[in-house]
Design a protein around this nucleic acid. Structure first.
Length: 600
DNA sequence: CAAAGTCGGGG
DNA sequence: GTGTACGACTTTG
């Protein structure tokens, strides 16, 4: 048996002989070779909570389901016995779950909507972007049919044992950005009519290139004889560079769909994927996500939207905000005129095209490290994390922790429940004291560090600790001001215990960061602690987010009610020491000292 | 006043 | 892909 290590970049599954095969895509950090590791042993499953065990087991067997196990899981604080129904193919889950749920002996079904590759990452406790150790053997592409035949320089590896997460970070951090310019004489271009005229590439290793069908003396311009050749060269460079991350700006919605359509129109194969596949699109919310199998495509536009607050999010505006510098600009609607001019304006267009890719790489260098840190915390693929909202990250993080702590995951709300939640999810916000007019001297500012996370822990606010307090002594629970919601003091709730862990972990990382001498590692710790902070701070919002699995509006309301009380009490206390509050908002207030400054 | 509709980025 | 989704803002009924 052989052992190899890979940086885990991507994961999916394919079907062969009606059975699923998990594929881990990675790069061997020593040889820089691409590896596809396959696992043929993992099976999909869901959980059933029965009314009556024996009848239910019998009913399930009658349906032809006989791979059944009994497991004890914690369900919102209470231990229950579940039947684990093991299936052979992931697509059986949506096919069978309705008929399983409808069995009279079935009370509930659980964990029936977790994508197969995500289930794999959670159950095997492996983390994308980490270095993973694999045991098995190198094989020929026997598992693959012709259309999926992989390149000769890709190692195919069959796993014989579970992968081992070494918890080591990828030292390699190669970013390659790309951008295209297209001919646009009639407003917004259409791939049907308008050719690509330039394709720019920029790596954080120094690579700078603009491919084009026109000539220039500029050293970064490479001229190709046709659009067809330009596209082929584009693919060739990406394969040669083999970056850890392929980044674009609005590339999910513009560049990649455009490149794909032009390639189809020109009848050429774009085998950009590590497995030889082309560009695919996945429907994700309101936009499509461009997928290149085995490579991590990150659209920076989404990261910018998530992490910056601006009036507009054009590449130009974002670059200016981050680097305090103007970028080269060519008005979008005039690109075709610059192209047709064949004079110095064409040269300007080459510079503009190059600059777009260069600034994209610079923005990528700034924003992707946090996304990588979040990937390592949440344990889902970088591709997915780059497209998740913070609420979704919290949820997948909790799902991972639920598995570790043997908690069964709550279901997502069905349509009825969801619309009901939407109607009644108004929660009173933080305490706000309108600022007093005037000019003040001797201003003091007090703020609660991570107010809401601290309240969740201090008052043990969790869906599994909420109680009506019946037949209990008052000392056994915390009572929320204003609304009277009650939360058990013991045992520690699922979410408070996880926030506690996150906050402790953050302190640990901050300490490591302070002691660290290597700047690169120091920076990595900084992003990790930022990621932890965001997770902790987003947990409150998640309680009030209608689609959240751990949704509990009472928890959200209790947190803000306690928050208002904390800050009012702090202000009262400050007044006792001659500080007059002049403005307050949610987790802090400003006060002016009105006592005698000469005293003491 | 709530429900329904639009739009972001890209050229 | 064990998917079907955002949020701020404006217009409409």
């Amino acid at each position: 048996m052989e052992t190899i290590k890979i940086v885990l970049n991507d994961i999916d599954y394919v079907t062969r002989n009606d059975k699923p095969i998990i594929r881990l895509f990675g790069i061997n950090p020593e040889t820089e070779e691409n590896v596809i590791a396959v696992d043929t042993t993992f099976k999909p499953y869901l959980y059933v909570l029965p009314y009556d065990f024996d009848i239910c087991l019998e009913d399930l067997r009658e349906m032809g389901l006989d791979d059944l196990e009994v497991e004890t899981k914690i369900d919102i604080g209470t231990e229950s016995e579940f039947i684990k129904v093991i299936l052979t193919h992931p697509q059986e889950v949506p096919k069978l779950r309705d008929s399983i749920r409808d069995l009279p002996s079935v009370k509930q079904i659980r964990e029936y909507d977790i994508p197969f590759y995500r289930r794999y990452l959670i159950d095997k406790q492996i983390t994308p972007t980490n270095i993973i150790e694999l045991h098995g053997e190198t094989i020929d592409s026997i598992l693959y049919s012709e259309e999926l035949k992989i390149d000769e320089d890709v190692t195919l590896f069959k796993m014989m044992e579970n992968p081992i997460d070494t918890h080591k970070t990828n030292k390699r951090n190669k970013i390659l950005s790309f951008d295209i310019e297209v001919y646009n004489a009639e407003g917004m271009p259409t791939a049907e009519n308008d050719p690509i005229i330039m394709m720019s590439l920029c790596g954080n290793n120094g690579l700078k290139k603009v491919l084009s069908t026109k000539k220039s003396d500029k050293s970064f311009v490479e001229t190709l004889s046709s659009e067809k050749d330009m596209l082929k060269r584009f693919v060739e460079i990406i394969k040669e560079e083999n970056p850890d991350m392929l980044v674009g700006y609005n590339s999910d919605n513009f560049d990649l769909p455009y490149i794909k359509k032009r390639a189809e129109k020109l009848n050429i194969k774009l085998d950009l994927g590590v497995d030889g596949s082309g560009i695919k699109f996945m429907k994700r919310g309101f936009n499509n996500a461009g997928v290149i199998k085995g490579r991590v495509h990150v659209d920076l536009y989404l990261l910018v939207r998530r992490n910056m607050r601006l009036e507009r999010y054009t590449l130009e505006r974002v670059y200016e905000e981050l680097f305090d510098e103007k970028k080269i600009d060519v008005p979008g609607d005039q690109i075709y005129q610059y192209w047709d001019s064949d004079d110095e304006r064409l040269e300007e267009l080459f510079d503009y095209s190059m600059d777009d890719a260069v600034t994209t790489t610079m923005i990528g260098d700034k924003l992707t490290p946090l996304t990588v840190a979040q990937t390592r915390l949440v344990g889902q693929p970088l591709f997915d994390i780059a497209r998740m909202t913070t609420g979704q990250m919290v949820e997948w993080y909790l799902m991972l922790k639920a598995y570790e702590k043997n908690n069964i995951i709550p279901n997502k709300p069905d349509t009825d429940e969801y619309s009901q939640r939407r109607k009644s999810n108004k929660v009173i916000g933080g305490y706000v004291k309108e600022p007093e007019k005037g000019l003040f001297e001797h201003i003091a500012y007090l703020d609660f560090k991570s107010l809401y996370p601290s309240i969740i822990i201090a008052q043990n606010i969790s869906p599994d600790t909420i109680t009506d307090g019946e037949n209990m002594d008052e000392s056994e629970y915390y009572t929320c001001p204003e609304n009277g919601y009650k939360f058990l003091k013991e045992p520690k709730g699922f979410i408070p215990s996880i926030i506690g862990y996150i906050l402790d972990e953050r302190q640990r990382i901050k300490k490591l960061m302070k002691e660290e001498k290597v700047p690169e590692q120091k920076r990595a710790y900084d992003f990790e602690q930022q990621g932890l902070k965001r997770l902790a701070n987003s947990m409150f919002g998640a309680y009030g987010y209608s689609r959240f699995r751990w949704y509990k509006i009472e928890c959200a309301a209790a947190i803000t009610a306690w928050g208002r009380e904390y800050i009012r009490n702090a202000m009262k206390k400050a007044e006792e020491y001659d500080f007059k509050p002049i403005y307050a908002d949610t987790d802090g207030f400003y006060a002016t000292y009105i006592g005698d400054l000469n005293e003491e």
